[in-house]
Amino acid sequence: MISLIAALAVDRVIGMENAMPWNLPADLAWFKRNTLNKPVIMGRHTWESIGRPLPGRKNIILSSQPGTDDRVTWVKSVDEAIAACGDVPEIMVIGGGRVYEQFLPKAQKLYLTHIDAEVEGDTHFPDYEPDDWESVFSEFHDADAQNSHSYCFEILERR
């Protein structure tokens, strides 16, 4: 099963200049909980913004210009990325925008964090048809001392 995991502000903004323009430790914990011990696929820009392999996960970098870091697996196509994951129950696609666009048609599940923030962004989550998805989990949280904005975790499964 292919799943996408993303944090989205208003207007589906997911990033600005290779960074997330908010401070939500709870979302980072949600991300870790849902990706640990699963292969993660990301684009080169996302890889560069993280700066290191995510521990406890097979890191697969999709790029037309593969790098030389041998701590991760470099691939040039969506099919190659899927094959590099091996026989696993769930593959997690973690961004960025172009990689989400490439995998959305193949995805069966979306793990979304909806952030109540209007922020400037240069990267967006692809538009998706809500009628194609069923919400199977939703959990709202107010902003607090650690988390700069209110947010809602949601899991959607393709109908």
Rank of each mutant, 00 (worst) to 15 (best):
Val99Leu: 12
Ile5Ser: 00
Ala145Thr: 06
Ser150Glu: 06
Pro126Ile: 15
Tyr100Ala: 04
Glu101Asn: 06
Lys76Ser: 05
Ser49Ala: 07
Phe137Arg: 12
Lys38Phe: 13
Cys85Lys: 06
Glu157Phe: 04
Pro66Asp: 02
Trp47Asn: 05
Glu17Thr: 01
Pro21Thr: 02
Arg98Ile: 01
Ala9Thr: 15
Ala117Arg: 08
Ala26Phe: 06
Arg12Pro: 00
Pro39Asp: 03
Ile14Val: 14
Lys109Asn: 12
Leu28Ser: 01
Glu154Asp: 14
Ala19Asn: 13
Cys85Tyr: 15
Leu4Arg: 01
Ala19Thr: 05
Leu36Pro: 00
Met20Trp: 01
His114Glu: 15
Lys109Glu: 05
Lys106Thr: 10
Ile82Leu: 05
Asn59Glu: 07
Ile60Arg: 00
Val136Ser: 09
Pro53Asn: 07
Pro89Gln: 08
Ser63Ile: 04
Thr68Met: 02
Val75Phe: 07
Gly86Gln: 11
Ala81Phe: 03
Gly56Leu: 04
Phe125Cys: 08
Lys76Val: 11
Ala145Phe: 10
Ile155Arg: 09
Thr35Cys: 03
Glu90His: 08
Val78Arg: 13
Lys58Cys: 09
Val136Asn: 10
Ile155Ser: 06
Pro126Tyr: 12
Thr123Pro: 00
Val40Asp: 00
Leu156Asp: 04
Asp11Asn: 03
Ile115Phe: 09
Ala19Lys: 04
Val119Gly: 04
Ser135Leu: 14
Met92Phe: 15
Ala19Ile: 10
Lys109Tyr: 13
Asp122Lys: 00
Asp142Met: 10
Leu8Gln: 02
Leu110Ile: 11
Leu36Val: 02
Ser150Asp: 11
Glu120Ile: 08
Arg159Leu: 13
Tyr111Leu: 09
Lys76Gly: 06
Gly86Asp: 07
Leu62Trp: 02
Phe137Gly: 07
Phe103Lys: 02
Gln65Pro: 03
Asn59Cys: 11
Lys38Asn: 15
Asn37Phe: 11
Val93Ser: 04
Glu80Cys: 08
Ser135Asn: 15
Asp132Val: 11
His141Tyr: 07
Gln102Tyr: 15
Asp144Phe: 04
Gln102Thr: 14
Gln102Ile: 15
Lys76Pro: 05
Asp70Val: 07
Trp133Val: 02
Phe125Ala: 04
Ala83Thr: 10
Ile60Met: 10
Ile2Lys: 11
Pro55Met: 07
